[in-house]
Design a protein around this nucleic acid. Structure first.
Length: 682
RNA sequence: GCGCCCGUAGCUCAGUAGGAUAGAGCGUCGGUUUCCUAAACCGAAGGUCACAGGUUCGAAUCCCGUCGGGCGUACCA
């Protein structure tokens, strides 16, 4: 079904063209700013008058003279400097609504004329860390964008570009080794936790810090020597089997430890800078004889050990780096399983088949770099391989590089992003690629896009879109953290939301069964977190507040869910009063709209597709939540003023239909597009 | 320094390629329940759209400048 606004736009354009004998006029039909101006206002005439240097009011008169909308609107009115105000005829609204009602699946939302293949890159957690609040926005905004585009009939390919190939992984692997050695050799005394506290405590005390670091280094070297069979430091004695056992551990234990270990490695390496402490490690020989130890031993600065491991990791397809590969696969497996539990709870449509992480592009990285070098697009600069796209400057005004390979040979996220673009355009046949990440990565993507175009990996008509969003802030106006200054785990955040929702349900509706309470608490709690995010303009930061998002007043998930539950309650009540809803609804051939509240609700219902279109074209879910909120408000007014079940036989079918369509629209918006559950009662 | 984003009611935020008297919610004050869920509804007060210029029929929106805040700016993502 064509949206009313589009029909009007077409008619206005035709009238404008006829009035001034000129093509491509823009009508600028917008919803009215004030109900007293009608339902839609035409702004384009004034702009056209300016362009033609004529009197806008006169021009408006000429346009209206050519305009035929009598089947849709009352007589158009000219107002102010040259607005044309349009008011829909109740008959037209009624007819329109009946058509939408017939289309229960799509509620009147049209499909795109030319469906495109659209890649949406979102969520992308770093698997070295437990998913935290920083992953929330990309995950849910990305999911909503996919659902909107799918509704419009596009071929949407979801890509979860997980971070599994960078320095963070090197740190986790090193951390796991510490965990292993702690258990195998140090009676599980959790030395790393103790040392983490010491590192924190000695921050300001250089002497103590130095002796602490020396102590750590010595133990490390000794343990490393010992964790070797048949050759020293190969990790075959303890670490290899430890990785196998890891599968049996509980997720909570793993994540608890990894979090601490990660901090430990980070702080240790940070503290080591400038101390000149060296640690032995092995590196593969350039060439070696058969049956010879393929490794040689070198000393590297202790603080660069995790980066060294990252480089080893990035060569995991070399059969001598099997240990790193095992560790990588194990972490990936554990972490992804955990991520998908979160996705499930969040009602986000992401599955394992959508995962294509940095590491999956590993075989493309060398070709990417050599390709760019061969075509003189990339150059070596200070031993790193760089591309200098035009128009980007650094602090000194010098050309700013995209580094695609570090001086130590490691690849970076720009490299994997480039490999991903090549794959998406080349293999997936993308017409458009949408990246949903926070605004801080803007420069990165601008530059990566520039390089991809320089290399000719994207066609000129391929759209590369960076959909940005702001940060989630705490009540203090700073990025949301725990009291200890750590990232808030997504799981804990969701747990608390559900718990709080549960308390409210208990208070408001104590007579419900335990199961029902649980179900409602889950829908309300998770829904509240998601809805609060969606209802904010995505480009701005927002302050996270459980109290606000769980409030019944205002633009919140519970308010929407309540409106839905009220309608469902009417339906339940109808059964006890022997009102045959199905029969009455099926029998509606014509609507009888008499009350202002009915007309107001009906008009809004007919505009669902406009809201979808607005939200989809700008990738802004808050246009959809605003629409839904207004819908719920209008329904509340209707509910208060128009009894449904007690209405006379001339009015009841219409009112039942308004209820039914309101419920369907709320459910579609909330559940199908935002992934927020509705509940039958609350 | 340069670049990007932002500054709207006491608070949290909307404001859809410039449109008419700038909107919600919270909070404050007042009202509504013999009636389908009051987890609701209705009303009132509350604004120099950071500041100063410009563009024009018209600016919160576009341009220039100032102030204030956030983020980014070569081997992290």
């Amino acid at each position: 079904m064509k949206p009313v606004i589009t029909i009007l736009e077409d008619r206005i354009i035709a009238a404008m063209s006829a009035a001034v004998n000129q093509r491509d006029c823009t009508a600028q039909v917008r919803p009215s700013t004030d109900p007293k101006f009608g339902d839609y206002q035409v702004n384009g005439v004034m702009a056209l008058a300016k362009q033609l240097k004529t009197n806008p009011r006169k021009l408006a008169e000429q346009v209206v003279a050519k305009l035929d909308v009598s089947d849709i609107c009352e007589k158009p009115e000219i107002a102010g400097p040259g607005f044309i105000n349009l008011k829909l005829k109740p008959d037209f609204v009624a007819k329109n609504l009946l058509e939408i009602n017939k289309d229960a699946e799509r509620l009147g939302v049209e499909k795109a004329d030319k469906p495109k293949t659209i890649i949406v890159d979102f969520s992308g957690p770093n698997i070295a860390k437990q998913m935290h609040v920083g992953h929330l926005r990309s995950t849910i905004i990305g999911d909503c964008i996919c659902r909107l585009l799918e509704l419009e009939g596009h071929k949407v390919i979801r890509q979860n570009h997980i971070g599994d190939w960078g320095t963070a992984l090197g740190k986790v692997i090193l951390g796991l080794w510490h965990w292993c050695m702690d258990e195998k050799k140090h009676q599980s005394k959790l030395y790393y936790a103790t040392e983490l506290n010491e590192l924190k405590a000695y921050k300001e005390n250089k002497e103590s810090m130095i002796s602490l670091c020396q102590r750590i280094r010595e133990r490390h070297e000794k343990d490393w020597e010992e964790d070797g069979y048949p050759i020293r430091g190969d990790g075959n004695k303890y670490f290899g089997s430890f990785l196998d056992e890891l599968k049996q551990r509980k997720d909570d234990e793993i994540w608890g430890n990894i979090t601490v270990l990660y901090q430990y490695i980070n702080l240790l390496e940070e503290s080591l800078v400038g101390m000149n402490l060296m640690i032995p490690t092995r590196v593969k020989k350039k060439s070696y004889k058969k049956d010879e130890n393929p490794f040689e031993y070198i000393s590297i600065p202790y603080e660069s050990l995790s980066r060294h491991i990252t480089t080893m990791l990035q060569k995991i397809d070399d059969k001598d780096n099997e240990q790193e590969k095992d560790a990588w696969e194990r972490i990936r497996e554990i972490s992804l399983k955990y991520c998908h539990e979160i996705y499930k709870r969040l009602n986000v449509n992401l599955s394992m088949k959508d995962v294509r992480g940095e590491g999956d592009y590993r075989k493309d990285l060398l070709p990417v770099v050599s390709d760019l070098l061969r075509h003189d697009i990339a150059v070596k600069s200070d031993w790193a391989v760089c591309v200098f796209p035009e128009g980007f400057k650094d602090k000194e005004g010098e050309p700013l590089p995209v580094i695609i390979q570090k001086s130590d040979g490691a690849y970076l996220y720009a490299t994997t992003d480039l490999a991903a673009i090549r794959y998406r355009v080349g293999e997936l046949k993308a017409d458009r690629i949408i990246y949903v990440t926070d605004a801080r990565q803007q420069l990165h993507f601008e530059m990566v896009f520039a390089v991809a175009r320089m290399a000719g990996w994207v066609k000129p008509e391929t759209e590369l879109v960076h959909v940005t969003f702001g940060s989630v802030l705490g009540e203090n106006g700073k990025p949301l953290k725990t009291r200890e200054g750590e990232n808030v785990k997504l799981k804990e955040l969701l747990d608390e939301a559900v718990e709080r929702a549960h308390k409210v349900v208990n208070e408001k509706n104590p007579e419900l069964s335990g199961d029902e309470k649980d179900k409602i608490a889950k829908a309300v709690g998770i829904g509240a977190v998601k809805y609060a995010d969606y209802s904010n303009n995505r480009t701005s930061d927002y302050v996270f507040s459980f109290d606000k998002m769980l409030a019944m007043e205002g633009n919140t998930a519970p308010y929407m869910q309540y409106a839905y539950a009220r309608i469902k309650s009417i339906e339940r009540k109808a059964q006890t009063r022997q009102v045959p809803i199905e029969t009455e609804l099926a029998g509606v051939k014509k609507l009888n709209i008499s009350e202002p509240a009915e007309l107001d609700l009906a008009k809004h219902l007919a505009r669902y597709s406009e809201a979808i279109e607005a939200a989809a074209v700008d990738y802004r879910p808050n246009y959809l939540t605003s629409y839904l909120y207004e819908l719920a408000q209008k329904f509340s007014v209707f509910y208060a003023n128009c009894p449904v079940l007690d209405a006379g036989p001339d009015k009841r079918p219409t009112r039942l239909l308004l209820c039914d369509l309101t419920a369907k629209t709320i459910r579609h918006g909330l559940s199908n597009l935002l992934g927020i559950e509705v509940v039958e009662q609350m």
